[in-house]
Design a protein around this nucleic acid. Structure first.
Lengths: 346, 346
DNA sequence: TAATTTTATGCATACGTTTTCATGGTGGGA
DNA sequence: TCCCACCATGAAAACGTATGCATAAAATTA
């Protein structure tokens, strides 16, 4: 009854073949270049395709080839700029390989992780990109049983079965300390969110180690580590205030992440402490925000976009390998991004 | 040769049926509750499923039912916090309806838009969520021809064929002006990114209209609209500086978006102008960043998460409607989020 | 107990492709 | 002229599921 839309039934390959006066398999051969076909028939097929507005049905194709053109990405919170940049890199590389990125945002909810992995497998995903350390450790076993390859990002693999892409966390901290040191700082504090993940633990350990190695004193009251909260900016704010209440004030601060740094920055500014003239600040990650705050944040960059891309490349290799490849752990070098939150000590 | 992984072939419904000693169709009926089945057979099937570690193949299912369990979302840049929050809302609602969110990030590239829509259709997507105004207008016709329903977000539909979800832009501006007015401001400037989209045009027009209506003077040099650049924070910075160079300085500023506001904030701070004591600032959108800068930004909130959710609901209705529904344009009320970038005029 | 309805299960086909293999036609070398 | 290699096309069988329909068994009624 409604004339506005005709609702043509979708054309199938059979329709195209009929229109072109050839067999359905010939059309398939033409599309997939899986057999030679005469220029003349090519022409007819092309025209038929155009005329019928034919569009290959990927679902049927995937069923037949037992493949899948989706690439699942697991993140805890796409709203976190770290993960959205990562997602962009993964999506970009996936696209280039002909995959569609499907987003699984678990919201840090343990039970969702298992459900979402299940969904991904039902979609016949041939591999997974896991962008953070899953909360539910039992999933590693379950995943291993399905023999579905996966690549972890920013995670040190829980055992020697998994591949991953991580930034060189120790090197990042070294770069930060040495940079501040070159500016004349040696009274340096370290503020961290709860170090429940290996990357954070490594950063903290390396901070202490390198400070000692450089001959700088490390004071307990300058190593402030949050135990409870989850909101990183609030953590930074709290810890920043706490640091200011200490009788001795450092001349510089390194944080475990940019979000913590931004919180600390707000703490300092709201206490009337000038950054960077009174206190210097170095973050970690280089999320977009870092360049937006005032003063803009000097930070240790994790090349998230590149890490996303690289992870897809590795995963593709794992997926196409007939045999079990030996897992790789790829270490990406971090990079100092100099902006305006650091100054020389007077 | 490799003993570490057995690579069991995936169990199919047939395998389960065989194991349980029933017919494949019975298993299907059991799983889909499409026929009554004896408790005893249920038990056998359940056990077989567990034993074989069976997992339904969605690809086959989708082929058979000519459906699709994916929901494509188009955004220009997932890295932009506005879109990542939107994506979260869409993903959440989609999940609840049993759909997987696949992310199409066009990177503001015209030619990608068409390609990605093509990919989405090949995946047999039954509907699209389009999170921004497509650059390539020809796509509207093409989309209309395929008779695939779509829902637009933050976009006024190009014609009366499409449904959309938009915030009440005029109301948002009114709220901002009236809020500042209550604080005693009447010298208010407006800074805007290039108004190439209807929402931005509306905001600007409404600003002028409501200022006049309230009896406030609108000065040409206080309405600063960028023409060239794309980076919104830079735009804000440039415009902010430009505003300061004007002989008369307003006591308050409204911007077209939070990112512009943050740029302007940086411009003010770096010129030694105190915010909010010397100048008040109101943004638009309420992206997460708004609460992270110092001082935190008072802004007009677009409920992005809710808008994402609502759009999925509407789209689902469109998709299940056998007949062509009459398109709906849903207007969402904005909301004032009071933070610390505004002060009463002394 | 026979007739009838209800309940539980299975058979067979189709969804839109890919892919193996067979077949008829074409041309070149001897 | 005959044989063989090659080339272009097609026929047919899957891939793993949903579903209409038939059927056998059980339950109900008379």
């Amino acid at each position: 009854m409604n004339l506005r839309r005709h609702d043509k039934p979708k054309a199938t390959m059979r329709d195209v073949a009929w229109e072109a006066g050839v067999a359905q398999s010939t059309v398939s051969h033409y599309l997939n270049k899986t057999a030679t076909v005469t220029p003349e028939t090519k022409r007819k097929i092309r025209e038929a395709i155009k005329k019928m507005d034919y569009r290959p049905n990927m679902v049927a194709r995937n069923l037949k080839t037992r493949g899948s053109s989706i690439l699942p990405l697991f993140v805890p919170d796409i709203t976190n700029p770290f993960y959205s940049e990562l997602a962009k890199g993964v999506a970009d590389a996936a696209r280039r390989k002909g995959f569609d990125l499907v987003l699984y945002d678990t919201g840090y909810q343990r039970n969702r992780e298992g459900d979402y992995i299940e969904m991904a497998l039902r979609q016949q995903a041939g591999g997974l990109v896991i962008g953070y350390n899953l909360l539910d450790e039992r999933l590693w076993d379950r995943l291993e049983q399905t023999s579905t390859p996966a690549i972890l990002i920013d995670v040190y693999p829980p055992n020697d079965l998994w591949s991953s892409v991580v930034v060189d966390n120790e090197e990042g901290i070294r770069i930060a300390v040495d940079y501040l040191s070159r500016l004349g700082h040696h009274d340096i504090a370290y503020l961290s969110e709860p170090p429940y993940l290996l990357p954070l633990i490594k950063r903290q350990r390396e901070f202490i180690r390198v400070m000692k190695e450089r001959g700088f004193e490390v004071r307990r009251e300058w190593i402030l580590v949050e135990k409870q909260q989850v909101n990183r900016v609030k953590i930074g704010f709290t810890l920043g205030k706490e640091l200011l209440s200490s009788p001795l004030r450092p001349t510089a601060v390194i944080t475990s992440s940019d979000l913590v740094a931004i919180g600390a920055l707000n703490a300092f500014l709201s206490s009337g402490i000038k950054v960077p003239s009174e206190i210097s600040l170095v973050g970690f990650d280089d999320i977009i925000l870092a360049s937006y705050v005032h003063p803009s944040l000097t930070t240790i960059r994790q090349p998230k976009f590149d890490m996303g891309q690289r992870s897809v490349e590795i995963l593709m290799k794992l997926m196409s390998a007939s045999d079990q490849e030996t897992p790789v752990v790829e270490i990406i070098p971090p990079q100092l991004i100099e902006r305006h939150s650091c100054a020389g000590v007077r």
